[in-house]
Computed example of a mutant assay.
Amino acid sequence: MADGAKRLPVKKATQPLVIPRSAAEEQRLKLERLMRNPEKQVLILEKPKDWAPRPPPEFVRDVMGSSAGAGSGEFHVYRHLRRREYMREEFMEKQAGQQRLEDEFQTKLDRNRRVAEVKTEKRRKKRQKLKEKKMLAKKAKKELTKTEEGSAENSSSEEEVENPSEKVDDCEESSFVMGGR
């Protein structure tokens, strides 16, 4: 190039203007823009604090009476004070309603928890009784086999070797009855 020729600046490839047609597309575009430069810090805003009205003044200096002589601007001051007081009362009623709902929810949770504990305790007792019943049946079965073995030894001493195919397998016994009454 010659010294007298001007250099034209090289333009970056501009991205076409995309108008999002839905909230999902808008979110996708925002994510794409964020992911173009992953090292860049992203500001994540915290949840704003709940609005709370100013407390009423402890001492009112300019008391407006019903006497004559109030200026034309006093009505607007009165209207503003009244609006602020109504907002404060509405806020307190809303807080009371939320507190009432929270209390109802907690009582319902406690009641459900107590009902669940009662059911669990009943089922626990039932399982314990069933377990004790099985243990007693097992002991009785052992004693019965011991007495049968003792009587069998007295009557015939020829069958001292047990056949493994004659053993009763515990896993084949069903632990529950299907379709029975």
Rank of each mutant, 00 (worst) to 15 (best):
Q106L: 09
R123D: 01
G65M: 06
Q106P: 03
S67L: 05
H80R: 10
K141H: 03
G71H: 01
K125V: 07
Q98M: 15
D103K: 11
K125A: 09
R111K: 14
H76K: 12
I44K: 04
L31C: 04
R113V: 03
L29D: 02
M35S: 09
V118A: 02
E85H: 14
E46Q: 11
R61M: 11
E32I: 07
L136T: 11
N112R: 15
E93K: 13
D62K: 10
L136E: 07
K119C: 08
Q99K: 15
V118C: 01
T107Q: 14
T145K: 15
E58H: 13
P48K: 04
R100N: 11
F75C: 08
R28K: 15
G71Q: 02
V77K: 05
P57T: 01
P57G: 02
N112K: 15
V115W: 10
M35F: 04
F75K: 05
L29I: 02
K138A: 15
T107F: 06
A52V: 06
G69D: 01
L144G: 05
Q41C: 09
E90H: 02
L45D: 04
V115L: 12
T107I: 08
R54C: 08
E58T: 09
P53Q: 03
P55V: 01
F91E: 00
L109K: 15
A140Y: 09
K40F: 11
F91V: 00
E104V: 00
M135K: 13
N37I: 05
K30C: 13
E117W: 00
K94G: 10
Q41W: 10
D62V: 07
K94N: 14
R124I: 00
K125Y: 09
E32C: 12
S72C: 03
R36I: 03
T107D: 12
A70Y: 05
Q106E: 10
G97L: 15
M35E: 13
L136W: 13
K133I: 00
A140C: 12
Y78T: 07
L136S: 11
N112P: 03
A137V: 10
H76I: 08
A70I: 08
A68Y: 04
K142P: 01
E143W: 00
K94P: 08
Y78E: 09
L29C: 02
G73V: 04
R83C: 15
H80M: 07
W51Y: 11
A96D: 01
G97K: 15
G97H: 15
M92N: 11
L45M: 09
A70M: 07
W51I: 02
L130M: 14
K129E: 00
Q128H: 13
M35P: 00
P56W: 01
E104G: 01
L34R: 10
G69L: 03
D50K: 01
L45G: 02
K119Y: 11
V60M: 08
E143Y: 01
R124A: 00
F91H: 02
E104T: 01
R88G: 00
